[in-house]
Design a protein around this nucleic acid. Sequence first.
DNA 1: CATGAATGAGGCTTCATTCAT
DNA 2: TATGAATGAAGCCTCATTCAT
Lengths: 197, 197, 197, 197
Amino acid sequence: MTMTKQQVVQAFRMQSIRDAASRVVSQHGVGGATIDAIAAEAGIAKGTIYLYFKSREELLESAADHAVTELMAQVAGVLESNEPFDVQLRRFFRTVLAYFDEHRDFFRLYQAACKEEECRSRRYTEYFKRIRAWVKRAMEADEVRRLDVDRVALVLSESLGAVIQRRQLDAPPPVDADTEWLASLFLDGLMPKKGKI
Amino acid sequence: MTMTKQQVVQAFRMQSIRDAASRVVSQHGVGGATIDAIAAEAGIAKGTIYLYFKSREELLESAADHAVTELMAQVAGVLESNEPFDVQLRRFFRTVLAYFDEHRDFFRLYQAACKEEECRSRRYTEYFKRIRAWVKRAMEADEVRRLDVDRVALVLSESLGAVIQRRQLDAPPPVDADTEWLASLFLDGLMPKKGKI
Amino acid sequence: MTMTKQQVVQAFRMQSIRDAASRVVSQHGVGGATIDAIAAEAGIAKGTIYLYFKSREELLESAADHAVTELMAQVAGVLESNEPFDVQLRRFFRTVLAYFDEHRDFFRLYQAACKEEECRSRRYTEYFKRIRAWVKRAMEADEVRRLDVDRVALVLSESLGAVIQRRQLDAPPPVDADTEWLASLFLDGLMPKKGKI
Amino acid sequence: MTMTKQQVVQAFRMQSIRDAASRVVSQHGVGGATIDAIAAEAGIAKGTIYLYFKSREELLESAADHAVTELMAQVAGVLESNEPFDVQLRRFFRTVLAYFDEHRDFFRLYQAACKEEECRSRRYTEYFKRIRAWVKRAMEADEVRRLDVDRVALVLSESLGAVIQRRQLDAPPPVDADTEWLASLFLDGLMPKKGKI
DNA sequence: CATGAATGAGGCTTCATTCAT
DNA sequence: TATGAATGAAGCCTCATTCAT
């Protein structure tokens, strides 16, 4: 795991370019994320980008990959803990919401870059699988009703995504508010709790 | 409201161009929806498009608007009926899923065209407002738990969108299956129904 | 063989672009024949070139092809006549030299474009085959000594090429002088004609 | 003429770079002979090349120059011997053909680098002058028919060049075969030897 | 001396838009 | 109205050259 100074510098540079790309995308959309704009944002020359990435496409893909990876690292601990599902669900929502409050760039980058073509690949798949596995475990432990695992995982993550995106407009409520609200909706549903005395 | 023959022809022509745009987008993505391709698909000359739409952007926006409008017309009846919420919710899901099963073109058009820039504007806002109003009414009638109306409407529509998108891959289950499943999730939540003797 | 007016215009435009390309190459070399320069020389916009040729490479190839074809048309009559070989040889040399005196652009275009890669293809091959066939016929008729047909054809055409190229520098002697000289060399060789009392 | 150790090292380094350039050109053409590729082939850093050559152009020119010089050194002995012209001609052809069989890299480098711009300069001129002088001497000694000296020298060297190039495709016949054949053509011409009793 | 990361001019190509017919 | 040839701005990418280490 020891890296030469070279490798450290290279890694650093690559990340700074990815960050610049992410920022540009978040401000101008994927279509507006030209190499010129990204280079300007990164404060380097156009050509320099090609020392680190083979093409614009590879750069955007890499930026998305890295963002998902970073998020995953933060989410992993939560999903693999031994707490009850409802506690985990709250922590999961809170973690992701907080991540995006700090990286509000990302969502659009990720979504837009991946809507077209077969993107959304590798990393996101891993991310999604992790959520799916977590839901599955909860179902098997009867902590959660048995429903289509894939669809539940999908709806959970996409609903979260939608809330995140919405938080990017106007002044969002505190993270905890959205967290609690989402958890409540998914745990108990929309129906009034008649039967719960 | 009577239209001259001229206006009828014009309206017809515009819609046929929008439809062509929609088809092209669904096949080649928004990036691949060049004016050339759209004109070819519509069987007209490139220049003709500019007789009806000011720019490519306006055309795509208009196409998305119209698609949402069409969907809205179908959804409106459901949301304004006097049935109980759970029945409405099922019909709502079913209607939208069915619409997209027949117009699977649209989703990508709509999503992609609108992620960038501040699209998603006008029409979608109306569509969303209608759902929001419906949810609000249900809450006020105590058919639904009182939660943040905006967020509930958001999560409902986005979850539906996610499922729709997922349905476009592989062989989707019947509309009714996804309908029932979504309804169950949102009505009763994820927790096992212990108390429901 | 009747062409629509469209086709005529298109053919004319294509040829004018080829001609511009040929001129630019002859002045600045193949490397200097940028799309910008060719468009400027043709008096049209850069993009227009792409309405008629798929890429720079295709344009240059096409230009070379057409030049060879034109030359071939002029040479064909000579080679297929029923005159004795020495007469034909003189007419052949004269025709090609004259062609290049009027199109002195071409040689460098052709040579340079084809040195790299496997160019020199199609058309030139045809041109060469014609010469080869002619030489072969002459040999079979015992008008010419039996030597390696391929090599003879090669040396004839390349020697001619060299002389053409040389003629492009300084003030060249009249076409007839070079014609006569070449014919004499190839017909009788370098040795003094001792035996020919 | 004694060189300091410095100068020796410098000369050696320059030649190794020229050789690398020559190899790269022979494999990828002049267009593909980027500074990057040449440096990699030479096993040195890009910047180092600029310590020894002012620019890419100067390097390629220098490489061509040196190759011609080397060839010239081998040809010189032949052309200045006191043997009869026909013997010399055969030895000349054989020497050049053999040189290129071992350095088939060179031809394309030389041709391509020099077609553009007014290359083909200095060294080649010397090389050519030497051949010209030799032919002239032979004419003055009545070993060769009196024809335009320049054109004869030109046709001799270019014909040889053409054969060399052709030898680079497919499996070439032995050097001696082409040597003999060329000599025969140029010595005696194409006409059947009727008069030779 | 040697290095190679950084630069940026310049090339190719696409495509939204215009306009003469 | 309809057409589609022409335009040219703008994007992506390459690579010769420089310069701080």
